[in-house]
Each structure stands twice: as C-alpha cells, then as structure tokens.
C-alpha cells in the first residue's frame, strides 16, 4: 500500500511480499521480534494464517507469530 495508511500484518494478503513500516509498543516483545528480523524496512510475506496466528517468511526464515504480534506489526 502506498504512503499514508499502514496495514497491520494481521490483515496482509497471503503470498504477497510486504515491507515493514512500523512496530508498535517499545517493549521486550518488540525487541525479541527485532532480533528475529522484524525491523522497519525488512520484507515479510505471509505463508499461512490460522485464526489470526500466522506463519511468515522473514529474512529467509520461517517464523510463527500469534495474532497479538501480527497486529502490532504494520506494513
């Protein structure tokens, strides 16, 4: 999506490569996400989704994240 409106990763389309624009809440969880590669500018793609929980491709690896996380990452 172009400039302006960001979309939560939780709503991203499966199979489409998105770029992370922002991650909410500066806390421990955010830092753990960052160490996994979820940083502004990284490319991420949703592989599979299960009631809000998602498996995404990030930095060539596969990470499973819960819905709570997916709503804090904006692409």
């Amino acid at each position: 999506m172009g400039g302006g409106a960001y979309m939560p990763l939780a709503m991203a389309q499966r199979g489409k490569v998105e770029t992370i624009k922002k991650i909410n809440d500066k806390d421990e969880v955010k830092r753990f996400l960052e160490s996994l590669g979820f940083v502004v500018g990284s490319e991420v793609m949703v592989v599979s989704e299960l009631s809000g929980n998602m498996i995404v491709n990030i930095k060539d690896s596969r990470v499973a994240i819960s819905k709570a996380m997916a709503t804090r990452i904006f692409v």
Binding site: V29, R62, V63, A64, A68
Partner: peptide
C-alpha cells in the same frame, strides 16, 4: 503470553 517461534524448514 505472545507466541513467537521460528519454524525450521
């Protein structure tokens, strides 16, 4: 707790 886990290929 939030759930984050790496899945190996």
């Amino acid at each position: 707790a939030p759930f984050v886990m790496e899945l190996p290929a």
